[in-house]
């Protein structure tokens, strides 16, 4: 098993055939698809396609369970803000009144559209994080000739996030060992006592940053001066080759994006007016 940013995938996963740049390109471009697709059924199809890709990549599909509460709470917030607190719209079709709130069909439709736009974006990100190692992101950025400093700062940020979580566990265990534990206590109590974790964590973070700077200096890295102008050989990139398959996939992803734009703005599809689901629902409601 190989560790990715969001779990583990087996060594035999076919995703390793694909160059990290293609994965990053997929994330950046496919995440944009829902922004140009209003019809929920198409976004649903996009989600199913990404689930299939995850299955093909041999991602442990159980990790999706942790996103169910996120999807539910996000859906609830969208529903409440769009449907319950929708305001007064005489031009819309009023379905019924709930206490002082007017529930309109158009606002329910809009909530569904927004929800089905956000979900594929999140799932695309989950797919990317589940199949990508931190190193892949760096390789992807360096393969498009992003400046070393940019990729390195990005790598440091990724590493720092992991370190803060590790340090949090250390602080928590250290305090538990001395009898301080918020487990089973009320949420206000936990919030009040959270500072007990935050202060040592903040101190640890400061120490970490000092150590990190020392490590960079000791290994001859400099942001300024003659040492910063040394031509770096990007050794890690020698492990990766951009094959014909990668070129083909990049072209397909790019072409799909262009096709969506043409179909949306050239032919008027993917909009609400042509959405089978909303047309059918509108007829049903009358």
């Amino acid at each position: 098993m190989n560790k990715t940013m969001l779990g583990y995938i087996p060594n035999e996963s076919p995703i390793y055939v694909i160059h990290p740049f293609v994965k990053l390109f997929f994330l950046l471009v496919v995440s944009l698809f829902p922004m140009f697709i209003a019809a929920p059924e198409w976004n649903l199809l996009l989600m199913i396609s990404i689930f299939l890709l995850m299955w093909w990549s041999r991602v442990d599909m159980k990790i999706l369970r942790i996103y169910v509460p996120v999807a539910i709470s996000m859906g609830s917030i969208i529903f409440i803000s769009y449907v319950i607190f929708s305001g007064n719209h005489p031009e819309y079709h009023l379905l019924f009144k709930f206490l002082a709130f007017k529930i309109y069909w158009e606002r329910i439709r809009d909530a569904i559209v927004v929800y089905f736009r956000i979900l594929p974006m999140i799932i695309t990100m989950v797919f990317f994080l589940s199949t990508t190692r931190e190193r892949d992101v760096i390789v992807a950025m360096r393969s498009i000739k992003a400046p070393f400093v940019v990729t390195y700062v990005f790598a440091m940020a990724l590493r720092s996030a992991g370190m803060v979580l590790e340090d949090f566990q250390i602080v928590r265990q250290a305090e538990q060992a001395r009898g301080f534990d918020t487990k089973g206590k009320s949420i206000p109590y936990k919030i009040r006592k959270y500072v007990m974790y935050m202060i040592p964590l903040f101190a640890l973070s400061l120490r970490r940053s000092e150590e990190f700077t020392n490590a960079l200096v000791a290994r001859g890295y400099a942001f300024t001066g003659p040492a910063s102008k040394v031509k770096r050989a990007d050794y890690i990139l020698t492990h990766y080759t951009f094959k014909k398959l990668d070129i083909l996939l990049t072209i397909i992803i790019g072409a799909l994006f262009v096709a969506i734009l043409i179909i949306r703005y050239g032919f008027g599809y993917f909009g609400l007016n042509t959405s089978i689901l909303t047309i059918w629902a509108s007829k049903f409601i009358g």
């Binding site: 190193r135 590493r159 990190f212 001859g220």
Partner: peptide, 15 residues
Amino acid sequence: TAMTVEDELVFGMEN
């Protein structure tokens, strides 16, 4: 300073 052992070993040499 790096994400994998290999990157770690290579970092100083690249510098």
